[in-house]
């Protein structure tokens, strides 16, 4: 009686597999720490400004280049602006640029990679297009994009949103090629697997073949290039700001803080280290989360 009851309870319904994914994710220590770090960074930049209400753009020339103090916990920069407020404001921009640009580049790369790998007819066209993009000199291209589109975008969406859209699109549109190639290679391998043939014999149409069979099986390389993509997007954004192509100079981003501080690096090393540590921590935590997620999504590793 009890046995039957237990057995019935056990097989109540196929459990939502995301619970299994979470169970496995929990066993990955690095991923848990990464998740905690990432959430605390998010908390700092999202909830922080509610408690530390100083305006990051407020210039106080009497309080230039100050060290750590009660009035300015992380000191001030060369114009006397509060570093803590600037780091919080800069993080918001940097992380949103990083995540959005990564999402854009991964979506673009995966779509093109999957289409090129799955549909033989499109392969030549799409992959030659990818090669074309890889061969483009990126900086002149970005320069051109910024000069052409900065004004109209600023006018339509306002200066900040306009530049944000421009930067994200520029980074996304110039960094999807690697993931497209990687994804295409994996799709070519998975496409020949017998379970794809089995799905064809069932009559699964190409659309669902891709979403049900191909995509889950090429998840690992996509995850890897996604986590690496966040890092390179944040760094590209700071390089763009440094060249004067990105956000306006008074607009704080982590990359901008870093480059502003480089001039006086020997006198005030802390001003370089702080944004640098924030970028590294974000990138590292996202990498670990991606690693844990990749393992958790693979049922062959799950449960070991």
């Amino acid at each position: 009686m009890t046995d039957a009851a237990i057995a019935a309870a056990k097989r109540k319904a196929p459990r939502n597999q995301w619970w299994d994914v979470w169970d496995q994710f929990k066993t990955h220590k690095g991923a848990l720490i990464g998740l905690a770090v990432f959430f605390s960074i998010l908390a700092l930049i999202l909830i922080g400004p509610w408690f530390w209400t100083m305006d990051p753009g407020f210039v106080n020339l009497r309080a230039r280049n100050q060290g750590f103090s009660a009035a300015h916990p992380l000191g001030t920069d060369q114009l006397g602006r509060d570093m803590l407020a600037r780091i919080m404001a800069g993080g918001k921009v940097s992380i949103s640029v990083g995540l959005t640009a990564m999402l854009l580049s991964i979506t673009l790369g995966t779509t093109i990679g999957v289409l090129a790998g799955y549909f033989k007819r499109l392969e030549n066209l799409l992959m030659r297009g990818t090669d074309l993009f890889l061969a483009l000199p990126l900086l002149p291209l970005l320069l051109l994009m910024v000069t052409l589109f900065r004004e109209p975008l600023s006018r339509t969406f306002g200066p900040e949103t306009g530049i944000f859209i421009l930067i994200v699109t520029a980074i996304g549109a110039t960094s999807w090629m690697q993931s497209a190639r990687i994804v295409r290679g994996s799709v070519l391998a998975v496409k020949e697997a017998e379970f794809v043939l089995a799905a064809r014999s069932i009559g699964t149409p190409p659309r669902r073949m891709i979403t049900r069979h191909i995509l889950p099986n090429v998840m690992s390389p996509i995850m890897v290039s996604a986590t690496l993509g966040i890092a390179s997007a944040i760094i590209t954004e700071s390089a763009l700001s440094f060249l004067g192509l990105g956000f306006p100079p008074d607009f704080p981003t982590w990359g901008r803080l870093l480059f502003d501080a480089v001039d006086a690096m020997q006198l005030y090393p802390a001003r370089v280290i702080m944004p640098g540590v924030m970028i590294s921590l974000t990138v590292l935590s996202v990498n670990y989360i991606g690693d844990g997620l990749r393992d958790a999504l693979d049922p062959r590793i799950r449960g070991r």
Binding site: P14, Q17, A193, E194, F195, L197, A198, A199, R212, H213, P216, N217, M219, L297, D298, P299, R300
Partner: peptide, 9 residues
Amino acid sequence: QASLNPRMT
């Protein structure tokens, strides 16, 4: 082995 999708229950 090959004819079953390893990512499906």
